[in-house]
């Protein structure tokens, strides 16, 4: 769909903007992550407006992996793993922002730039659902990506 192209172009321009501004000498991804965070915080409120309350943390994560992911990233998360102690690993074998970049280890050093926004998006969404967390991403071979969610308790 054509509308989706716009979001992809906007995303890559945001990456470009946050990483090339003069104040950002050491490729700090925090501004990019924060843009994702504020987007996630707001959008989740719209998405879950008419949704029944989630049963528990795992139920919330399942929502993120299925409905949330497929409406934003056009496919579901391929694999969800958890240690039942607040660590969740979401694996996407063909992550939307990486699929057009490479299907090998070429450009691997640039991968973090294209996943930081999403880390923020997930963190912001969870935050507004009452789960404070730290989200990081790990890319070994593009376009596959693993998102690690560590729930902060206490």
């Amino acid at each position: 769909m054509a509308e989706e192209a716009i979001f992809e172009y906007l995303h890559s321009e945001i990456v470009n903007y946050t990483l090339t501004k003069e104040t950002n000498k050491e490729n700090d991804l925090s501004a990019l992550e924060y843009i994702g965070y504020s987007t996630g915080y707001r959008i989740i409120e719209r998405l879950t407006r008419e949704w029944p309350r989630f049963k528990d943390e795992l139920d919330t994560m399942k929502f993120i992996c299925t409905d949330f992911w497929s409406s934003i990233y056009k496919k579901q998360i391929d694999n969800l793993r958890t240690n039942h102690q607040g660590v969740y690993v979401l694996q996407d074998n063909a992550f939307r922002f990486l699929t057009r970049l490479s299907s090998s280890s070429q450009y691997l050093e640039h991968a973090p730039k294209f996943v930081a926004f999403t880390c923020g998006l997930v963190r912001g969404s969870l935050a507004n659902l009452g789960i404070t967390s730290t989200v990081t991403a790990e890319v070994q071979t593009m376009p596959s990506c693993k998102f690690h969610i560590q729930v902060n308790r206490g």
């Binding site: 769909m1 509308e3 979001f7 906007l10 707001r42 409905d67 497929s70 409406s71």
Partner: peptide, 25 residues
């Protein structure tokens, strides 16, 4: 994809909100 969300609406809201976050940054 089988989602209970209105994908078209999500897309346009996602764009709006992402752009808003960029402007405020």
């Amino acid at each position: 994809q089988n989602t209970r969300l209105d994908t078209k609406k999500v897309n346009s809201e996602l764009l709006t909100l992402t752009y808003g976050a960029l402007v405020s940054q």
